[in-house]
Nucleic acid binder design. Structure first.
Length: 479
RNA sequence: GCUCCUGUAGUGUAGCGGCCAAUCAUGUCGCCCUUUCGAGGCGACGACUCGGGUUCGAAUCCCGACAGGAGCACCA
């Protein structure tokens, strides 16, 4: 990283407290956090709450909770709204210097002026002393309309430089400052000023702000404030998983998803419910690196990283999807002790078996009379009759190589529903077929699993268990 | 429309003038291992968008085309 000195790097993650964090935020937060760590520096969490219409109290804490879950730790935290008085002072300085003016035009007129690179009369009329008076009126009363604009370059090719707005009046109640303030800085002003005065050396932001870099540096230079080393990276998008509130909100309103923690969503809460562990998100993000290349990643990349974390630390159980009954003639009564993990020592569970079993339909359909298979971890069975139910005979305990080993349950089982999430979007439209269900029987021991735990159902996949109403249900993580 | 950014295997990345007939991961296929269709091991497959230029030498620098993304908010 350029200009980075060990011990002197300061980064920051500046979310707006207007919703739950998603994988895109995670990318930013992890990069900020990791760079601070690599360089032995500091990492600041800053809430960019400069629009009281967007900021909501619940999200300050929700976002912190999500960050902690991710394993991101910050050295200090504050709100941009804490510093409004400072922002006002700096604004006044700009006005006095003649570098900002008060514009009274309508937003349509401003838009048009900007599009056509035409200045408005406010630029001459309401600058210097005249602007200062108006600015003070504005601060004093929300009745006074107008915005503070930077004296930029209306002829610039870069439209962001065509006198960007620095402050505007928003009367809404702010979750932290209430009705104390009604003049709020825009992102351009607040972001630049905060990065500088809070000592940030390396602020990262996503590529869509690139055109605003000159605005950022212009503001700081006019204010004679230190300019940090701004850097940009591309947004992270996952195929079929929208990240924007613009797309998710309608789904919630129409009841197409259960909420921001819907298991099909790439919100941190959705991913958590689905059984994606924070370490996997972190490794996935780091693997992506932070280039400026636009990329649309397939969710399977997340899954494969996650699988490796889960495999070594998750217990194994049997779940029989679409169960078919199997009666075994001459079945010996057994007390099977089955290991909870093939190589780690996680203990075992005990199952008493009689002559009735259940096996997956998918396997049952492939069986013919005379076939021999193994009830995994138990003994062999020779099929004698197929049909709606299976009949077989006990065929010995010895392990026969090359025979199918099939998971099973006895009649002492619990019914379990597993929800299988799919891609919630196909191209630009909602995929109504994005949620499937798998019904089956789980071995009895599953009822004793802690809610929220992730297990592997052998030959089925990884599943996170949760309580919905009174029922235990599984969420399919991945194979 | 104008402006800016980006363009390496199916996907994501490393490389940023010679060490690159291009790294790693994922994927697919094959073999080994394993009482899971998981994990692990080994191997194979597969890419520098195109056209000019600079240079003894270009994936790497320059120009152009094309493609993708972004901005043109009193939202961040």
């Amino acid at each position: 990283m350029p200009f980075a000195e060990k011990g002197k790097v300061v980064t920051r993650f500046p979310p707006e407290p207007n919703g739950y964090l998603h994988i895109g935020h995670a990318k930013a937060a992890i990069i900020d956090y990791e760079y601070a760590r690599i360089y032995d520096g500091k990492f600041i969490l800053r809430f960019d709450d400069t629009n009281p219409e967007n900021a909501h109290l619940e999200f300050y804490d929700a976002q912190k909770e999500d960050l902690r879950w991710l394993g991101v730790e910050w050295d200090s935290e504050y709100h941009t709204s804490d510093h409004l008085e400072t922002h006002y002072k700096l604004a006044e300085q700009l006005i006095k210097q003649g570098d900002a003016y008060l514009c009274k035009c309508t937003s349509e007129a401003i838009k048009e002026g900007r599009f056509n690179a035409k200045t408005c009369s406010c630029r001459e009329d309401r600058t210097g002393e005249a602007a200062l008076d108006l600015w003070k009126d504005m601060l004093a009363s929300p009745e006074v309309s107008g915005i503070l604009r930077l004296h930029g370059e209306m002829g610039s090719d870069n439209t962001a430089m065509r006198d960007p707005t620095l402050f505007r009046v928003i009367e809404a109640e702010h979750p932290l400052t209430g009705d104390k303030y009604h003049v709020w800085p825009t992102y351009d002003f607040a972001g630049a000023v905060e990065d500088s005065i809070s000592g940030v050396t390396h602020p990262f932001r996503t590529k869509e702000y690139e055109l605003r870099d000159p605005v950022y540096f212009r503001i700081l230079s006019l204010l004679n404030l230190r300019a940090p080393h701004l850097m940009e990276f591309s947004r992270l998008s996952i195929e079929g998983m929208p990240v924007s509130k613009r797309k998710i909100k309608p789904l919630i309103e129409q009841g197409l998803v259960t909420g921001f923690d819907d298991v099909r969503l790439p919100t941190l809460r959705g991913l958590k419910r689905r059984g994606i562990v924070p370490e996997a998100i972190k490794q996935f993000v780091l693997q992506q690196g932070f280039s400026k290349v636009e990329s649309v990643v397939d969710f399977s990349l997340v899954e494969s990283v996650n699988r490796k974390f889960l495999d070594s630390r998750v217990k194994r159980y049997y779940f029989v999807p679409n169960p078919v009954q199997l009666s075994v003639d001459g079945a010996p009564k057994k007390t099977a002790k089955l290991s909870l993990h093939p190589d780690a020592t996680m203990g075992e569970r005990t199952i008493h078996t009689g002559s009735t079993f259940f096996v997956p339909k998918e396997d049952a359909q492939k069986m013919k009379a005379g076939d021999v298979f193994r009830l995994k971890g138990l003994y062999n069975v020779r099929i004698t009759k197929t049909g709606d139910t299976l009949t077989g005979t006990y065929a010995g305990d010895e392990l026969i190589p090359e025979t199918a080993k099939i998971q099973w349950t006895t009649d002492d089982h619990i019914p379990l529903k597993i929800i299988v999430p799919g891609l919630i979007f196909k191209g630009e439209t909602f995929n109504p077929d994005s949620l499937h269900e798998l019904q089956g029987y789980a071995e009895k021991a599953v009822s004793g699993i802690t809610v929220g735990e992730i297990v592997q159902f052998e030959r089925v996949g990884f599943v996170r268990l949760e309580k919905q109403k009174k029922d235990l249900v599984g969420i399919f993580t991945h194979k």
